[in-house]
Each structure stands twice: as C-alpha cells, then as structure tokens.
Computed example of a mutant assay.
Amino acid sequence: MSLQKQEQAEKKYDPRDKTLKFVDRGDDLDPVSSDFSSLRAEMSCGHAVTPDSLTHWCRSQLDEGNYKFRCPAVIEGTTQCNKLWSYQEVRRLADLTAEEIKYFEETMARLAAAEYSEVQQCPQCKTCVERKDLSNLCVKCIICTTKQKTYNFCWQCQRQWKGPGPRSDRCGNDGCINKDLKLLQTCESISLPEVTGVTSCPSVRACPVCGMKVEHNRQFCKNIRCPRCHVEFCFVCLKRKSKCCKTSSPYQICPSGVAPRQTSIPVWKK
C-alpha cells in the first residue's frame, strides 16, 4: 500500500491503550488541529493531539526543512508553547506506519547531516575532520600529521591531496569533480504548476547563501526556505524572498525570468 493511501485512512487511538493519557475535555486545545471528533492524547507539554493531526503537522515541518518538532500551540496572546517533542514521542503518538517511519527517519537524517555537512572522515585514519575554510578543498588531518609527515586530503574526492593548493574547484587526482556542480548543470527541468509563467526551471538549485542543494516540491509558491541556513529565497530567480517579492507576486514569474543553471556554488560565510 502506498504512503498516500495509508495516510488517507484515518488513524485512531485505541481507548483501551493504558500507555497514553487521553483528553476528552472540550477546552483542551489540539495545537495542530481544530477537529475534536477523534480521541486525543496528551503530549509531554500538556497539549493534546490526534494521530492524524500530529502526523500531518510533523510532515509539514519536514517539508519546510525542520527536523526538530516543537509544539505550535498558542498559550498566551501570540506566544507559542514551543516545547520540543522528541522523535520517540512523535513516533508513538502519531502512530507512524512502517513507511512513514522510513520517510521520517531518512528525511531527519538528511536534514541533520546537511546542517553539519562541513565535517567528514579523514580517508586515512577515519577521524572526523572539520573544514573551516569552505573555499579550500585541501584539508589537513591533524591526527595523521602528528604521526607522520603532513597529510592533506581532498574534501571533494576523499583521496590524498595531489597538486598545488589551496584550490576551490578540484585537486590533481584524476576524476576529482564537483558532483554537486555537475548535478546543478545536468538536472532535469521542471515546471511550477502554481506559479504563472514558470514552465521550465532547473529541478535542483544551490542556496544562494550557503550553497546547499535544494529541490522544489512543485507545490505552492516559488519561494522556499533553505533547510541549512534557513534563508528564504526565490527558486526561480535565486534572489532573496524579500527582494523578489518587491517586483512580483510569489505566484508569478519574476520580471528577470528564470535564472540560468548555476556554474558555481556559493560559499557559506557563517
């Protein structure tokens, strides 16, 4: 059964489940749904949810690049609860199916890895090494260097560094290519059905601020939020959302049209 079909079947708690604390008072707020027709269970923060409402809310957070789930309930004025829900709690109270668990965990792992992507294993000693100069592919492993002569490796091809450095494009090893840049130049073109005039746009872009690869889900407007640096930008013209929206609607093609395929990847200046 597909994930879509599984989600179409409404989830319901078993009222005999003694491991859950159920809420049946009408004044208890479900922070992610206004539907009180189903039995609701209490989260660790005290707010109540149904398994369906919790599943849909957390999926929407993953779609926006957030892999940490916080309670959105408004508790005073415009102040949100913002209590952090553990994945274990979400998995249990959302009653995730096996396919949903696979999607959640793979997406969460990808988003977390993207946030800390400037750490890799040294190809020789397997120690984790941080790359501090994001414009230089030549990285020195301190562990290996203390045991022998200076050991530098290529961040891109994961082999011992060959040739002069520093360099930002490649080392001297055969086959050392920037796979991310190649993807940006060869990825398929897509349309954005809800954005008037956008019929052919690269399906993968590099965030104009941090350089992370991002894709558009082809739903809603042309603006997306980068899951790593959290900057919102236009997927079509690659300008920041605040600048793009001064000249066009989020659902219309930009006056400058579709930005060409990127030939370089921005370096994130944290």
Rank of each mutant, 00 (worst) to 15 (best):
Leu3Trp: 01
Glu7Ser: 08
Ala9Pro: 00
Ala9Gln: 11
Glu10Met: 09
Glu10Leu: 11
Lys12His: 14
Lys12Arg: 15
Tyr13Arg: 05
Tyr13Pro: 04
Asp14Met: 12
Pro15Glu: 14
Arg16Glu: 14
Arg16Pro: 05
Arg16Cys: 09
Lys18Met: 14
Lys18Gln: 15
Thr19Tyr: 03
Thr19Cys: 07
Leu20Ala: 09
Phe22Ser: 09
Phe22Met: 08
Phe22Asp: 09
Phe22Lys: 08
Asp24Gly: 11
Arg25Ala: 12
Gly26Cys: 07
Gly26Glu: 11
Asp27Leu: 13
Asp27Phe: 14
Asp27Lys: 11
Leu29Trp: 04
Leu29Asn: 13
Leu29Ile: 15
Asp30Lys: 01
Asp30Trp: 00
Asp30Val: 04
Pro31Met: 02
Pro31Arg: 00
Val32Pro: 04
Val32Asn: 11
Val32Trp: 08
Val32Cys: 15
Ser33Pro: 04
Asp35Trp: 11
Asp35Gln: 10
Asp35Pro: 12
Phe36Leu: 13
Phe36Gln: 12
Phe36Lys: 15
Phe36Cys: 14
Ser37Leu: 10
Ser38His: 15
Ser38Ile: 13
Leu39Ala: 13
Arg40Val: 00
Ala41Thr: 03
Glu42Lys: 15
Cys45Ala: 05
Cys45Arg: 02
Gly46Leu: 06
Ala48Asn: 07
Ala48Gln: 04
Val49Ile: 07
Val49Ala: 02
Thr50Glu: 04
Thr50Leu: 03
Pro51His: 05
Leu54Met: 13
Leu54Tyr: 05
Thr55Asp: 10
Thr55Val: 11
His56Ser: 09
Trp57Thr: 02
Trp57Gln: 08
Arg59Leu: 15
Arg59Thr: 09
Arg59Ile: 14
Asp63Ala: 15
Asp63Leu: 14
Asp63Glu: 14
Gly65Trp: 08
Asn66Ile: 02
Tyr67Pro: 08
Lys68Arg: 11
Lys68Glu: 12
Lys68Ala: 08
Arg70Ile: 06
Cys71Tyr: 03
Cys71Thr: 03
Cys71Trp: 02
Cys71Phe: 03
Pro72Tyr: 01
Pro72Gln: 03
Pro72Leu: 02
Ala73Phe: 00
Ala73Pro: 00
Glu76Asn: 12
Gly77Val: 06
Thr79Gly: 02
Cys81Phe: 02
Cys81Arg: 01
Asn82Gln: 06
Asn82Asp: 09
Asn82Tyr: 00
Asn82Arg: 04
Lys83Leu: 02
Lys83Gln: 08
Leu84Gly: 00
Leu84Arg: 07
Trp85Leu: 10
Ser86Gln: 00
Tyr87Lys: 04
Tyr87Glu: 06
Tyr87Leu: 11
Tyr87Asp: 02
Gln88Met: 03
Gln88Pro: 00
Glu89Ile: 02
Glu89Phe: 01
